[in-house]
Design a protein around this nucleic acid. Structure first.
Lengths: 111, 111
DNA sequence: CTATACGCCTAGCAATCCTAGGTGTCAAGA
DNA sequence: TCTTGACACCTAGGATTGCTAGGCGTATAG
């Protein structure tokens, strides 16, 4: 079915969400749109992944939520980063960099 | 405990193993050593991940196994890529590239 | 008035990697 | 001699994670 839009790589979703929220307060539904948009339609974040992840991040005190109105006048749950969340995001990004480099080392090894 | 050696990113292990085996026939124990070595000690592949993965790859006809002697005169199960395996490896590598780029797009987005 | 987008939620599945245990051989050092 | 460590294989079960597939309610466009 989805040959086109790819699933999120396991273990990276938290980091991606935190990064999007770091750009400014935003509600859940919009997060999935932003991820799809910025990734140039590569990632397709499912709601069944999104909302549990948001609750997970809130429970770990990386995100704070607040009900507010959207531009279109509807209620939505806006998230913003906590200090802990910002710190954690940095750690995760550094970790990602090292991991991506390590993978690249292996994939680029010539026979 | 392991602040140093990182776990393998979920979903990438099959690709990494296939890539190592693509460098030439090799047995399981040596695969984990090679992965650790080439990744400059970043990845620490556990045996409880390694062997189930190898059986998985064999069942999918991406790897073939054969018992042979090592340099040290012991018996070991040497793996080599099948044609299907080589093809799958290429697909996975392309997929990884696109995914890594998509992640980079998101992580590099400035506020 | 009906479909679609918006916006939230949950239960349960499938996959994956790990921990923690096990087997047996062999070489080196106390 | 005996014990430790490296070599080389294996499995069961747990934890985590993202998805599928369902659900709710409102507003807007056709």
């Amino acid at each position: 079915m989805n040959q086109d839009k790819a699933a999120i790589l396991k273990g990276t979703l938290d980091m991606l969400i935190l990064k999007i929220v770091a750009l400014g307060p935003i509600h859940g539904y919009a997060i999935s749109q932003r991820i799809q948009q910025i990734s140039r339609d590569h990632f397709q974040l499912q709601q069944g992944s999104l909302y549990p992840a948001l609750h997970r991040l809130e429970n770990r005190d990386w995100l704070e939520a607040e009900w507010r109105d959207t531009d279109t006048g509807r209620e939505a749950k806006f998230y913003k980063l906590t200090k802990k969340g910002r710190k954690h995001l940095e750690t995760e990004m550094e970790s990602w960099d090292r991991t991506a480099q390590a993978v690249a080392l292996i994939l680029r090894t010539a026979p």
